Every structure is written in structure tokens, then in C-alpha cells.
Computed example of a mutant assay.
Amino acid sequence: MSKHESINYVEFPSNNLSATKEFFKKVFGWSFEDYGPEYTAFADAGLEGGFFKADQKSSTENGAALIIFYSNDLEATQAKIQEAGGKIIKPIFSFPGGRRFHFTEPSGNELAVWSDQ
């Protein structure tokens, strides 16, 4: 159910919808529903959203918001990301309250994973 004035949906660009979908299915277990050849919606991610066909990518270098996943086992999640074709762009580092790393998925969107362990 949608909650008044709360974040409800997020959208990302993707230059390769098939590769992006396969990556998120393998690593995070997301499900997808296509709406034509240039848009796919995802579910089972903690927040629903979608990917639209575009040549752009989401990157903090360009001022984009950073979506951050939580993991109970940072190293295991990093290994899954790399096995599925993701690229680590900032290796695991510590910060007050935990550790995290940044990665890009096959379309080049930057995301991060953190852990308090």
C-alpha cells in the first residue's frame, strides 16, 4: 500500500535492459515485469521501481543519488556482484558505524552495499 508523502518508486536508466535484469535477478533475487521494449519494472527489492532504456547512467560523480543496499555478509555480497558481472569501483572501506563498497551493474549505474558487521 502506498503511504502518503513517502518515497514510493525509483527509476534508473539502462542501456541494456536484458543484462540489467539478469544481474539483479542473480544477485538480489528481484523479479521483473516488462512494459514494452524500453521499460521494465522490478519488485522484491525493498522498494519498487523500474529501468528505462537510455544511454545515461546514474553516478555520484555526476551528482546522482546513491542507492545503498544492506548486507549481513559484505564479502559474500561483493563476490555475488562480481560473479554476476558487476564491477567494484570503490573497494570495501570503513566508516563510522560500518563498512561498505560501491559497484556498477552492467549498465553502469553506481550503487553501494553496507554492513554494520
Results as ranks from 00 to 15, higher is better:
1 M>T: 13
1 M>F: 06
2 S>G: 05
4 H>D: 08
5 E>A: 13
9 Y>G: 03
10 V>W: 08
11 E>R: 04
11 E>L: 04
14 S>L: 06
16 N>F: 04
18 S>I: 10
18 S>D: 14
18 S>C: 03
18 S>F: 01
19 A>E: 12
23 F>G: 06
25 K>V: 12
25 K>Y: 01
27 V>R: 02
27 V>G: 02
28 F>Y: 06
29 G>N: 12
30 W>V: 05
30 W>G: 02
31 S>Q: 14
34 D>T: 12
36 G>F: 00
36 G>W: 02
36 G>T: 03
37 P>C: 05
39 Y>P: 08
43 A>H: 11
43 A>G: 12
44 D>W: 00
44 D>N: 14
46 G>N: 09
46 G>L: 05
47 L>Q: 11
47 L>V: 15
50 G>D: 03
52 F>N: 03
53 K>H: 15
54 A>N: 15
55 D>P: 02
57 K>E: 08
57 K>N: 09
58 S>K: 09
60 T>R: 14
63 G>F: 02
64 A>K: 11
64 A>C: 15
64 A>Y: 11
67 I>C: 02
68 I>Q: 04
68 I>E: 05
70 Y>M: 02
70 Y>L: 04
71 S>T: 09
72 N>F: 07
74 L>P: 04
74 L>N: 01
75 E>S: 14
76 A>D: 12
77 T>K: 12
80 K>M: 04
82 Q>I: 15
82 Q>P: 11
83 E>N: 14
84 A>C: 06
85 G>F: 13
85 G>Q: 09
87 K>R: 10
88 I>S: 04
94 S>W: 06
97 G>T: 12
102 H>I: 07
103 F>Y: 06
104 T>W: 07
104 T>L: 04
104 T>F: 07
105 E>T: 12
106 P>E: 08
107 S>V: 07
107 S>P: 09
108 G>I: 13
108 G>C: 04
108 G>Y: 10
110 E>Q: 15
111 L>D: 01
113 V>F: 02
114 W>P: 00
114 W>F: 15
115 S>W: 13
